[in-house]
Amino acid sequence: MAYLWSLAALIPLDNYGHYIHWGVIDLSVANFIVIVLMILTFIAALFLPFPGRNRRKESQ
């Protein structure tokens, strides 16, 4: 449990949030990270092999 608390301390949550300003776009770093993770997940879903795909192809 103490190990988990030390992990939580890596991300300071008591400070003001960080923001990215890009023209009219005003985006929190937290939301930016989530968007990047969604894009990476999307790309991974397209290219990672699905378990059992070859087995299914052979059986058809």
Partner: peptide
């Protein structure tokens, strides 16, 4: 169908 065997169909 066979084409559903892809991670993109999991979401």
């Amino acid at each position: 169908p066979a084409y559903v065997s892809s991670w993109i169909y999991v979401f």
